[in-house]
Design a protein around this nucleic acid. Structure first.
Length: 519
RNA sequence: GCCGCUAUCGUCUAACGGUUAGGACGUAUGAUUCUCAAUCAUGCAACCAGGGUUCGAUUCCCUGUAGCGGCACCA
């Protein structure tokens, strides 16, 4: 039996988002599962839409989320070249073959005529379709015009009668009336093939066994089925996957409609296994008996569990909250050593480093501030990995993305705190009262903490006792101390923070706080 | 407009004609707690509508409605 061969066939726009990940992930998963090959083929037949370094940018994005290829422009194999613009002679040969067989014909209609035709058809509430004007020009005459250098395209001669039935793994049988399918252009006037010719020729020549693509291709699938027929080739199995819709569910996810580039997703601090996990769960669920209650799956589990037979036919909406949940779960299941390592790589490679696609991606406003703060802290983190590990451990189950970390840990690394009014709870006690409360409790804390011995019972006793003396609610005093020593209203348990900070630092912060409150 | 596909809690989904329609996210409440998070309970929340078929339809068929997708010398 031949090996399974899958392919991702993007146009090299350089743009990769969660929708594209979702479309290409199954190829990778299935290739791994069945020991097949995952191929990257670049469909750059539209010369008007070339992006510099687009191919490299996409490969970078896919590989960073864990989708690897066995063959492609960057990994030559025996089926190359893997870039369609380098295969033009191949398409010409097969287009000519179709003309010779009478399955295709030269068309000399101008773009202007076609546009007018479309407008007229729309005005008459008809489906815009080529009217077949050049369909019956005798071949010899057409060839003469071609030889004379007349601008022309090659169209496939789609039958006018009958029905074409397409077989799909996800959709089953889909049939359309042939009269509803137009004579698709196969070769453009510039000598490049259209997608329709190129995809069929290449899937055949590259011996693709299973062609997986977005279901936005479903309407043109019959054209491809017919082309296989015309060539006399056995088509691969096809699977059309449902789209991911933008959060409103109004449009398919795209850069224009709510999609973030993968470069930004990674830079924000989503883990690649979370990206895979979430993307695959759009439009697919494992068998109930194999499913995990928490819906968290590692890549190797996805490889085991995924198959095309349970893929949905309905589009799924992008849900940021669920993605966040999945990411936080994946962060939590890492050991602290792994997490530290991941944070360093993330900070160095994704935040301080550049993605190829950055050169043509509009930066988000958080990206530059994140870069600044990572620049500020990364070396400090690395200077004392033990300290970083301890601090990070306190935050591991509080963060959603890695980019939360520098903000969450800042007070461990700063020598001074800068407060805003909103960093204090002044509902029950004003700043003056807070200042004197802190001033009065400071010696008592000094007494119990001066040896850096942070005993929980002592700490509780002192704070609660002091609050009682003042006639304060216990929580108000804890909160004031929290604001003073961490610069914020929420933090991990204070004593655990102090164990890391050490009493001298805590004391300095309290003194600073007293001054600030009295300004 | 035409063609195609689809339709289960707000969202992602489970269900191979018979279930109190299950889970997850989110949300609400409670427990815990010095705050936040985490954790653990608990609550709210869905079979698009109308016809069939059947002893019995969320499930099968038809119609309607709605949504999405497609209708380029773009992929």
């Amino acid at each position: 039996m031949n090996e399974f061969r899958y392919r991702a066939a993007p146009s090299p726009t350089g743009k990769v988002h969660i929708g594209t990940i979702r479309a290409y992930l199954p190829n990778y998963l299935l290739a791994k599962k069945y020991g097949g090959k995952n191929i990257l083929r670049v469909e750059d037949t539209d010369q008007t839409r070339l992006v510099p370094n687009g191919v490299e940018a996409m490969i970078e994005a896919y590989e960073n989320v864990g989708i690897e290829f066995d063959e492609g422009p960057h990994k030559p194999g025996k089926y190359g070249p893997y870039v369609q613009s380098e295969r033009l002679d191949i398409y010409k040969k097969y287009a000519d073959e179709l003309v010779e067989k009478g399955h295709a014909y030269y068309c000399f209609c101008s773009k202007e005529r076609l546009e007018k035709l479309r407008e007229d058809q729309k005005a008459n509430k008809l489906k815009p379709m080529y009217d077949g004007l050049c369909r019956d020009i005798p071949v010899e005459e057409a060839k003469k015009k071609v030889a004379n250098g007349e601008s022309h395209v090659i169209r496939m001669r789609f039958p006018n009668e009958g029905v074409t039935v397409s077989e799909d793994i996800v959709y089953g049988k889909v049939s359309v009336k042939n009269s509803d399918v137009e004579d698709q252009i196969l070769m453009k006037a510039d000598g490049f093939p259209t997608y329709h010719l190129a995809v069929v020729v290449d899937d055949h020549l590259m011996e693709i066994t299973t062609a997986i693509r977005g279901d936005d291709w479903l309407p043109s699938y019959p054209k491809h089925v017919k082309l296989y027929e015309m060539f006399g080739w056995k088509p691969p199995k096809f699977a059309h996957l449902p789209m991911i819709l933008n959060p409103d569910g109004r449009k398919k996810l795209s850069k224009r409609h709510g999609a973030f580039p993968v470069s930004q997703i990674l830079r924000k601090g989503y883990l690649k296994e979370a990206i895979m996990n979430y993307a695959l769960l759009c439009g697919w669920a494992p068998r109930p008996e194999m499913a995990h209650q928490d819906e968290i799956y590692m890549p190797d589990e996805l490889i085991q569990l995924f198959d095309l037979d349970r893929v949905h036919r309905t589009a799924a909406r992008y849900d940021q909250k669920k993605f966040d949940y999945i990411n936080s779960k994946h962060i939590r299941r890492l050991s602290i050593e792994e997490l530290v390592e991941r944070v360093f790589v993330w900070a160095q490679k994704y935040v301080l480093g550049e993605f190829i696609s950055d050169s043509y991606t509009e930066p988000a406003q958080w990206e530059s501030s994140l870069k600044v703060i990572i620049n500020r802290y990364l070396s400090k983190w690395k200077d004392n990995i033990d300290l970083f590990k301890k601090a990070l451990l306190l935050e591991q189950d509080r963060i959603v993305t890695l980019s939360d970390i520098p903000y969450a840990l800042d007070f461990f690394y700063e020598d001074e705190v800068s407060w805003e009014e909103s960093d204090w709870n002044t509902k029950n006690h004003d700043k003056k009262e807070l200042a004197s409360a802190l001033e009065n409790i400071l010696p008592k804390l000094e007494e119990i903490f001066k040896e850096d011995n942070f005993d929980h019972d002592e700490w509780e006793k002192v704070v609660r006792g002091h609050a009682d003396e003042l006639g304060w609610k216990h929580g108000d005093l804890f909160l004031a101390i929290r604001s003073a020593t961490t610069g914020r209203l929420q933090s991990p348990p204070l004593l655990e923070c102090y164990e890391i900070m050490g009493w001298e630092k805590v004391k300095v912060f309290i003194l600073q706080a007293i001054n600030w409150l009295r300004l």
